[in-house]
Write a protein that binds this DNA or RNA. Structure first.
Lengths: 197, 197, 197, 197
DNA sequence: CATGAATGAGTGTTCATTCAT
DNA sequence: AATGAATGAACACTCATTCAT
């Protein structure tokens, strides 16, 4: 009855789980969480509806798992930034933020859509809230280290800009000069200023 | 022939319509469009479900009416800004944007939630797209007039900041120093620069 | 308070009532009774929804009134047929039946649609039943008088044919040779037979 | 991979589908299509409302499926008639038509009810139209072969009679002498005439 | 007599979830 | 582990009918 090894089973599990998560992300990130049906996810993942409930307790649990995975991925990226030279680190963070936007369009769309609903997806709201504050603190600290004037205010500006870029990029798409804005921010915050000395 | 006067009917209609629109805005702007049911709207507006369909063809038509009203309101505000002195005008626009954020939280939430869904609420997406570009052009032109260096790039920054502030304010609420950021932007863009002369 | 004479009021009543009945017939007879809404009737009659309920207790009462009017009209037509010469009378009846089909398409459609529903429009069913039997008796008697062989069976055939023609005309419309069939029936039943003597 | 065998699923599907179709026919054919609710069908089929939508896209699709099945059944019956001897064939067709009336009361009622509504169930109208013309052609040809005088006109009479019998039987039920009329038609059209030789 | 805004029970339909296999 | 048939609560929407004026 059990000719498959444990490893095979686990591989199966992993494969199905990730197929489901990928399909869900694809749909949540385009048509939205509420407008996506379990049937659509099952079809896109080429899996039966029932199987989804073997791995996830509910549609919301599936969402939660996705958000958590996303949160972990975000942390992982943060840990790869160089921690010695504050200027290099800031540049690394800025470039990382822009790359995130480029590579996680669906995720951004999803989160943006969820974060607007009050009292319903508190775990998303909380995560967004926490991340925003973490970013703020980190960047503020870096700007202080590189002796950028008004470092707190500038950190506010910079983090706010990140979110603004996210929204504008999401709406304007190719019309938004992502590369240009990236270089401009690098220049403003990571290069030695001439006239500000 | 007519037992209630035309005026009476008109008043009745206006009252119901606005009650419905208000209730819908309240709900769409908090729990979201899709998560809001017609029954909830009817209850909040203290009106029967059926009556809503006397005034709006469908749930989506109700949304459309709301968005259009919003769009008009936006235009009206834009027309009130002083058009003589570019510096004054820019300040007026910036202050207007912040006041909009303060007074239209529900609307912002709603639009932000809708704009993320692709191929579903194109009229919202289109409006957002158009407004963003209009703002960009207007501000760019003003910065050029007041001889702000790199006026196009700075206009990009400023409009992007508006959206970013919207997102952060929406998530962080009281934790976001709205007033402080407002003053800072006024100072940066509307006051004579010392070192830049 | 009552500056209008009784006659004026009655004229008003008659006008509205008949406008409503006409509109209802138009709609019942094309889209069907159930598919027709009171709102559609009101609109077509250029009358308010409420007024319809001044004259008719309910949608079904409106239908009943229509059917009754129709029934009376049918009787009136029957009374106009010449009662002296049985052959002439038969011809008159046959021609009358064909003219009825030509002039009462909507009514036929309506009745045909209603008569199929069991336990719902018994008054229609009953009327149809009664009319069919009356016709059968009358024609049978006439055929007997003109010494048509197998007069009962032939009466059955003839009345059945009337209904069949109704159905086929209703479905095939211009493709059905109504005039041709009319002449054929007249020839068969109302002219002296050559070979059958 | 699959817990229930393909066959098991197939059997389940077939069972549910036919239960639903039977229940729908029962109701459509008595109270009528529009007056029948999905809830009633579900209850009579001892099935949940939702399941109906697993098999049929909509109430109208359910009707369409029923009509199509009916159309196929009609063709099947037509193919069983003896094709060698035209007289035998004609008798077979006449007897077939009467048996159809006896065994398909609900279907006839349903179709008769639908065919009266214009611009709404065109597929029913079209089918009725087509069948009528097919029958007309076939019978006309047979009468020609057996050298019946005025074969076209007589074919018209005969097919019209079929429909008329349908209507009268539907209204008069047991009061209509179906058997008697059947024998009479057989005698008139399928037996060698005395005086016509 | 006449209006049309207002109601609410009822309709077709959807969809997350369960369960026998 | 996997299937998909089955459920039923919930939804958007309709419409005959009422009623204040």
């Amino acid at each position: 009855m059990s000719p498959r090894s444990k490893k095979q089973f686990e591989a199966l599990r992993a494969s199905s789980t990730s197929r489901i998560l990928n399909a869900a992300l694809e749909l949540f990130g385009t048509v939205g969480y509420q407008a996506t049906t379990i049937a659509q996810i099952a079809e896109k993942a080429r899996v039966s509806k029932g199987l989804i409930y073997n791995y996830f307790d509910s549609k919301e649990a599936l969402l939660k798992a996705m958000i958590e995975e996303l949160s972990k991925e975000g942390e992982k990226i943060m840990q790869t930034v160089d921690t010695d030279d504050p200027t290099k680190m800031l540049e690394s963070i800025i470039r990382g933020a822009f790359n995130w936007l480029r590579n996680h369009e669906k995720q951004n769309r999803l989160i943006m859509g969820l974060v607007t609903q009050v009292d319903q997806f508190d775990f998303v709201h909380d995560m967004a809230n926490r991340k925003m504050k973490e970013y703020m603190e980190l960047i503020s600290e870096l700007l202080r280290k590189i002796k950028f004037p008004n470092h707190r205010t500038e950190a506010r500006i910079l983090t706010t800009l990140f979110d603004g870029i996210g929204v504008q990029y999401l709406v304007l798409k190719q019309d938004y000069p992502l590369d240009e804005v990236e270089e401009m921010l690098i220049k403003r915050y990571c290069l030695p200023k001439k006239g500000n000395s």
